[in-house]
Design a protein around this nucleic acid. Structure first.
Length: 812
RNA sequence: GGGUGGAUGGCGGAAUUGGCAGACGCACAGGACUUAAAAUCCUGAGAUUUGCAAAAAUCGUGAGGGUUCAAAUCCCUCUCUACCCACCA
């Protein structure tokens, strides 16, 4: 037999799949559907190992599901708008469009070389007018239902990318794309009202409990940040007089009200402007505010430093005591009411502040375990029993929370309030290579949306094209020059895949109903609080617009977040120059070996570090495929020995067990690494069996199943061997997933070796017949001098035989 | 400060969910084949101690305690570590 020529085989099958459009999918109501989606790539130029991991995992799902008879949709496309194209355009003197198209062509070639089973007829590219037209259409629709608004506010600005960013796109104070420190700017920008959906986004996560990882769910829960509390009014005390004017604060711990010894407002709070005339040190506060607005480094924010407001005090509604007011940057304007009641005894931040200004600290909650008040427990806000709280003394803090809220409410000083941390989605970007925002600014009519019939609205090519005619009054007006966040593109692309060439609507409702929701989504965890929140939001909006007919509230039923591929522990990136090229590896050892490596080297969720050893593992994977290849010839050879019936049953048992395990690993556990090792074991066992057997029928049966089981992982070599076995159907086009026979799984050897545990320690083994009783086994053990020596002359307190598993003896 | 994970040989990682820890693979060592190398095939191996050997004993899943005949797995305390969020009241 010829040698395993991976280059030839891989090319042969890739051409065959491509020419015969094997993976093209159509709506078919007679077949169960399976929508397998991978996060669409940004066309940066070259595939890296992270892409390979993502897409190979996706391919395993797709191929496996075809084999078990599902109608699989496995599409791919390009997240083609974005800043790198603009930078490359300046650098290389070509247009962003050209640069992007070149990259797409190159990466498409690379994806085909990986043998991923995409339906290429559904390929989309978000920078094409046919696609981004619908971004604009969605914008107009959202505008109609009040989800679009323009607001001047403090926004995050990336000085390197020269654009604003959404809250989600600032990671620890740095730009998600270029890692530079972001700044705060006050600008008027376009927002989408994602906060309208905050509660729905949170509630609907209950439906994702089984299909999404806990980690992602908890990250989103945190990000949405629901907190239930109370708004409490504090009366203002101005010029030695109690007034009817009030300051509203938000708290989640109303039971600590008796411990409030001061209040703090944000430097940006409207209060300052409103009560300017009563604030004696207004100038000092205004100065502080300017410093706050101009701050560059965030350390200023971390300081527990503020300014006392002179001339105004507030009255604690619980005890009518007069307490001071402060301005400090540690109170955020955007959250709650922009003002807090400070309880220094039970809040670390408040206590730090109180120490600076010598404000009294009153403890109002005593912990249950009657500990003394020391510095450690001092500032914690644990549950306990109330003290120093008048009529509420002795009450449990949970109960007190309700009672105090009601008490304050009856006095007209409180109302229940729920707050969220999530902020509205800022979608304006000061970039050219993006979807133009379809808005016109007219001097007469104000802000006017571009009429739907004029979509797509293309980029202005010259400066003059910024000037347009107002659709309302026909006078000269200006276009919006900002573009949309590219996350808009990826918020609904999974719908477009269902009907990618539709020029009349964004997608056909019926087609989308057939395919949606996505059955398996695969991508990186870095999108947990970006794309995966935006996409869920968009889906809910589409439902509200009445264009989603699929059942269920969520777009992605199951989510697998694959771990990063790193080099020496850090992420591979162009700038670090530490990129391992998949092409080089596949050229030397084959695409199938590369695929096998990436699936076998680590479980999919775990980080996969490329080390010096990794190339050896690729080589090992190649060797294994070689071993599989040679087995083709060996199973037809004659052995000098003949196998016993038992040997035959054992190999069949092993085969059935392997089928069962691999099916489970693929279907619900996502354990590709152990699936592969089970198949390796079966291959090893088949080699051994062949040494002792002439029963080619059994060998062939096992071998065929091995090839079918391997197919989702290494499709090229499996198709080739399948063909060489004389089959005239391709695995790719059939429902050939092997079934196991339950009767064979029940097969047990007549005589098995059972471990014997004496007084908690493993002391030896005993040969046991399947039908042996406890007494039989006891007799056998007593005949074994070694085992007997451990409990001879002692009283047996317990003798236990757990069938086919273990014998337990306890003696005194 | 909050959240979610993780810690098993030289390495990547297994463990039927409480029942022989270290499957499978890499690296390593020995052997067969070969003029030689590669490839291939076979064999070995957690650590320590005893023994010429066959073998045996002890220890062993981050640390310490507990439950149990039996714990990598369950409970308590702690340490380290990764990721995400973070002055969110």
């Amino acid at each position: 037999m010829e040698k395993y020529d991976h280059l030839k085989i891989e090319k042969k099958w890739q051409i065959k799949w491509d020419e015969n459009k094997v993976f093209k999918s159509e709506v078919d109501y007679y077949k169960p559907k399976f929508y397998c989606l991978v996060m669409l790539p940004y066309p940066s130029g070259n595939l890296h190992m992270g892409h390979v991991r993502n897409y190979v995992i996706g391919d395993v799902f797709a191929r496996f599901n075809r084999m078990i008879g599902n109608n699989v949709l496995h599409p791919i496309g390009w997240d083609a708008f974005g800043l790198p194209a603009e930078n490359a355009a300046i650098k290389n003197g070509i247009s962003p469009k050209e640069w992007t198209e070149q990259n797409i062509a190159n990466m498409k070639k690379q994806l085909k070389m990986l043998g991923i089973s995409y339906d290429w007829s559904r390929e989309i590219s978000t920078c094409k007018p046919e696609y981004y037209k619908w971004n604009q259409w969605f914008f107009l629709k959202m505008n109609e239902i009040g989800l679009v608004f323009r607001k001047k506010s403090n926004v995050n600005w990336c000085p390197l990318c020269k654009t604003v960013l959404a809250n989600e796109q600032v990671l620890s104070g740095k730009c998600w794309r270029c890692d530079s420190n972001t700044e705060i700017k006050k600008l008027e920008q376009w927002f989408l009202r994602i906060t309208n959906y905050a509660n729905t986004l949170l509630e609907d996560m209950k439906q994702l409990k089984n299909g999404w990882e806990k980690q992602v769910l908890s990250m989103q829960t945190n990000w949405i940040g629901k907190s239930v509390g109370v708004n409490i009014n504090f009366d203002l005390f101005i010029k030695n007089k109690k007034t009817k004017k009030k300051l509203k604060v938000f708290t989640t711990r109303p039971e600590t009200i008796f411990g409030v010894t001061f209040v703090v407002i944000s430097p940006e709070h409207d209060f300052i402007r409103k009560f300017k005339n009563f604030i004696i040190n207004y100038n000092e506060i205004a100065e502080y505010k300017i410093r706050f607005n101009n701050y560059i480094n965030k350390n200023f924010l971390k300081e527990k430093y503020g300014i006392p407001i002179k001339g105004i005090e507030v009255i604690n509604p619980a005890n009518n005591k007069k307490i001071p007011m402060f301005v400090s940057s540690y109170v955020l304007k955007e959250y709650g009411t922009g003002a807090i009641m400070a309880v220094p005894a039970h809040d670390k931040r408040d206590s730090e502040f109180a120490k600076v200004y010598n404000i009294p600290i009153i403890k109002v909650i005593a912990q249950y375990d009657n500990e003394t008040i020391n510095s450690k427990v001092m500032y914690e806000c644990k549950d306990g029993v109330l003290i120093n709280s008048k009529q509420f003394n002795g009450m449990d803090s949970k109960e007190a929370s309700i009672k105090i809220t009601n008490w304050l409410k009856n006095e007209g000083n409180a109302e229940k309030k729920v707050n969220f941390k999530i902020k509205d989605w800022l979608i304006s970007r000061q970039r050219k290579w993006g979807t133009p925002i379809p808005i016109i600014y007219c001097k007469k009519c104000g802000i006017v949306p571009v009429p739907e019939r004029e979509l797509p609205l293309n980029f202005p090519k010259t400066y003059d094209e910024i000037y347009v005619i107002c659709p309302n009054c026909n006078s000269l007006a200006k276009r919006e020059t900002d573009t949309m966040d590219t996350f808009v593109d990826s918020s609904w692309y999974y719908m477009r895949y269902c009907d990618p060439n539709n020029s009349i609507v964004a997608f056909d409702i019926k087609k989308a109903k057939y395919w949606m929701p996505v059955d398996q989504y695969i991508g990186g965890i870095e999108h947990a609080c970006m794309h995966l929140i935006y996409a869920r939001f968009w889906y809910k909006v589409m439902k509200d617009l009445g264009i989603v007919a699929a059942t269920g509230k969520e777009p992605f039923t199951n989510l697998l977040t694959q771990g990063m591929v790193t080099l020496n522990g850090s992420a591979m990136s162009k700038s670090r120059g530490n990129i391992i090229s998949p092409n080089k590896i596949s050229g030397k050892y084959g695409v199938d070996a590369l695929r096998l490596f990436i699936l076998f080297a680590a479980p999919p969720k775990k980080q996969l570090d490329w080390s010096k050893q990794s190339m050896n593992i690729v080589k090992g994977c190649h060797n294994f495929l070689n071993r599989l290849w040679r087995l083709f010839e060996i199973i037809n050879m004659k052995s000098r020995f003949s196998a016993s019936k038992q040997n035959k049953n054992e190999i069949l048992l092993k085969m059935n067990f392997t089928i069962k395990k691999v099916t489970e690993n693929l279907k619900k556990e996502f354990k590709f690494n152990t699936a592969i090792s089970h198949i390796m074991e079966l291959v090893n066992a088949l080699y051994v069996y062949k040494w002792h057997s002439n029963d080619n029928g059994v060998s062939l049966q096992v071998y065929k199943n091995i090839i079918l089981l391997m197919y989702p992982f290494t499709p090229h070599i499996c198709e080739e061997l399948w063909e060489r076995l004389g089959n005239n159907n391709n695995i790719s086009e059939q429902n050939l997933w092997p079934q196991y026979t339950i009767e064979l799984l029940d097969y047990k050897k007549d005589i098995i070796e059972i471990p014997v545990q004496i007084n908690g320690k493993l002391r030896g083994k005993v040969l046991v017949n399947l039908e042996d009783s406890e007494d039989d086994i006891k007799r056998k053990i007593k005949c074994n001098n070694k085992l007997l020596s451990y409990f001879n002359n002692k009283k047996i307190l317990k003798f236990m035989y757990i069938k086919s598993k273990i014998v337990v003896i306890v003696s005194n």
